[in-house]
């Protein structure tokens, strides 16, 4: 008996989450526009879905910024970025569920841990390859990604199974003029907007931000101004990873089930968002992420939730074919 019982189908589980993304979001929702109550109800339903899409889009934005900022300074797609998001979600969860931290402290702790993780990843996996052919760094990135996923699956790290996140506060739905909005949605949007403002301030009003902008334009020219390019690259990885970590914690609160492979799908979607907006362009990442959030939510709500991912990645292929520089990218001058 006992030995004959199969362990839960772990791998199956993983692939389900990996490819179904944001399941809990769509539960208890009407799925068809063809339902009886057309008119006001439909409008409210659409607006409700748009708000869901905003929440998702804002979370994608936090991840997409890391892809785009890192691409800006080193012209490299950090494919381990989605896994940094995963680590962020776990550290946040451990913070408020296991270590008894208040949510803001858990967020900051997670951001700090992931900032260090990002810096270490860059130092170990990318810096030695900075002047090697691009493909070498790309393979290294995939290696880091797989390493993080399987390392975190180890029993003594996070373990391979789902963990159910106990929300640190109850979800509350408010009805505003017939539209339902939850405290979690408000928290996500307010937090992300605050972080976007901070980032904007950092990039345009501080010395290190200006250095980051020059490094993204021309390493040697930045060096000639006295910029330590290596430290600017480290700072960029730190900031990008910290934002992803914040995204991870918000995600764990909004969709309270986490596991070590949870970063794959949001990572790929956020990467798509960054490409859609124009890789290397910061407002582009936010714009692309908001579009992706809407496309995905509205597809799931009004077409079919099975089409959601197909359409999301269809967009990636379409952008690459039609406008590889993205929505905000410059067409004529391919950035160096």
């Amino acid at each position: 008996m006992g030995g004959g019982e199969k362990p839960p189908p772990r791998f199956k589980n993983r692939s389900i989450t990996a490819f179904s993304g944001f399941g809990p979001l769509y539960r208890n929702r009407q799925h068809s526009l063809l339902g009886v109550d057309m008119g006001v109800d439909v409008l409210e339903h659409v607006i409700g879905q748009v708000i869901n899409g905003l929440q998702l889009g804002f979370m994608y934005a936090l991840i997409a910024l890391g892809y785009t900022m890192v691409y800006g300074v080193v012209k490299l797609i950090n494919f381990a970025h989605g896994d940094v998001f995963m680590v962020g979600a776990f550290v946040g969860y451990l913070g408020f569920n296991q270590w008894g931290m208040p949510v803001p402290v858990a967020v900051l702790t997670s951001m700090a841990v992931c900032a260090i993780l990002g810096v270490v990843i860059e130092k170990i996996a990318y810096r030695p390859l900075r002047y090697a052919p691009k493909i070498a760094a790309l393979i290294s990135a995939l290696g880091v990604s797989l390493f993080l996923e399987y390392f975190c699956s180890l029993k003594f790290i996070f373990g391979p199974n789902y963990r159910v996140v106990q929300r640190p506060f109850e979800e509350v739905h408010w009805q505003l003029a017939g539209i339902s909005i939850s405290n979690i949605q408000v928290m996500v949007m307010v937090t992300v907007l605050f972080m976007l403002l901070m980032l904007q301030y950092l990039l345009y009003r501080t010395k290190v931000g200006m250095a980051m902008r020059t490094v993204s334009l021309d390493h040697d020219a930045a060096r000639l101004m006295g910029v330590n390019v290596d430290s600017v690259i480290s700072v960029t990885f730190a900031i990008g990873s910290a934002l992803a970590a914040a995204g991870g914690v918000l995600y764990a609160i909004a969709y309270p089930q986490i596991q070590p492979f949870m970063g794959i799908m949001p990572g790929l979607k956020a990467f798509t968002a960054a490409v859609l907006g124009g890789i290397g362009i910061i407002p582009g990442a936010v714009l692309g992420a908001l579009i992706m959030g809407q496309v995905e939510t509205l597809t799931a709500a009004f077409l079919s939730s099975q089409l959601r991912d197909a359409i999301a990645f269809g967009i990636l292929i379409l952008v690459l074919l039609v406008r590889p520089c993205g929505i905000l990218g410059k067409t004529e001058t391919e950035k160096v």
Binding site: R223, L224, M225, G226, N228, V229
Partner: peptide
Amino acid sequence: VPAHKIVK
């Protein structure tokens, strides 16, 4: 000496 220090 690295470039950024030479500027200084």
